[in-house]
Amino acid sequence: MKTNSKNSTLMAWLLVLPALLIFALMILYPFVNSIFTSFTNKNLIFPKNDFVGFENYTKLFKDPNTLPLLFTTIKFVFFSTICPFTLGLIWAILMNEKFKASEFMRGLTLVNWIIPGIAIGFLWNWIYNGDYGILNALLNKMGIIDSNIIWLAGKQTSMVAVVTARTWQMFPWYMAFIMGGLQGVPNELCEASRIDGANNIQVFTHIIIPTIKPVLILILILGTISNLQHFDLINVMTDGGPERATSTFAIEVYKKAFKEYNLGRAAALGVIWAILLGSFSFIYLRNLKEDN
C-alpha cells in the first residue's frame, strides 16, 4: 500500500517535471534575471554590466515621462477592455438568437481575431491615413469634412484610432466567451421569469447577467491583462507617438531595450510593469479559486 502511494507521488512529480522545467526556463529564469538586470547598467551593444543599485529606479521615478506613461497605459487598457467587451456582449446576445445564417455570422466575426495584430495595424493605418485613407475619403464624400484630418498625428485622435483598431481586433474574443456563458443560461429560468411578468430588459439584468457574471468578470480580468501586455498594434500604428500619446509600458520597455539598448532601464521598467500585471493576475487567480 505504502509502495503504491510512493509510486503515485513519484509518478505525479515526473509528469509535472516537464512543465516545471519549461516554467523555470521560460518564465522564472528570465524574470529573476530581469530583476538582477534592473540593478545594472547592462547595455545591448556595449559590453558593460556593472551593479548600479537603485539608479535605474530613481531615474525612472525622476523622469517626467513615467507618470504620463502610467496614465496612458491605464487609459489604453481601460478603453481597450471596455469597448470590445461591450461590443462583444451586444454581439453575443445578437448571435445567440436563432436566425438564418447566425452560425455563419459567428464564424465570420471570429476572422478579426484570427488576423495577426501586425496585419491589423497596417490595415487600420491605411484606413486612418490622412492623405489616402478611406476614412477621410468617406467623410469627405459625405460632406462631413472639407479637408483631410491627420488622425494619427493628434494626441487624442491617435489614442482613439488605436483603441478602435484594438476593439475591432478583440471583440470577437469577448463574444466567443460571452456566448459560451449565454448558452449555459437555463431556458426554463428565462421562461419562468417571463411568465412572472418580466420584460426583456428585466430578464437580461436580473437573470442573464447574474448567471454569466463569473464569465464576464473572468474575461474582463483576462482582457485587462492582455491589454497591459499589448504591443503590436500600437507599435505598427503609432510607435507610441505622437508626443508619447499612445506610449504604453510594452512600447516603452521595447524602446528602452531595443532602440536605446539600455537593458538595465528597460528591466527596471519591466519590473514595475510586472508588478502592475501581477496585481491583476492575483485578482484573476483569486477569482478562479472562489469559483472552484
Binding site: F46, A153, G154, K155, G241, P242, E243, R244, K255, K259, E260, Y261, N262
Partner: peptide, 22 residues
C-alpha cells in the same frame, strides 16, 4: 552614436508637442 535613438526620440517628441501647440 550610443544614444542615437534616445536623443532622436527626445527631439521628435518635443517637436511634435510644438507642432500640436501643447
Amino acid at each position: 552614436g550610443q544614444n542615437y535613438s534616445a536623443y532622436n526620440s527626445i527631439i521628435v517628441e518635443n517637436l511634435q508637442a510644438v507642432l500640436s501647440g501643447s
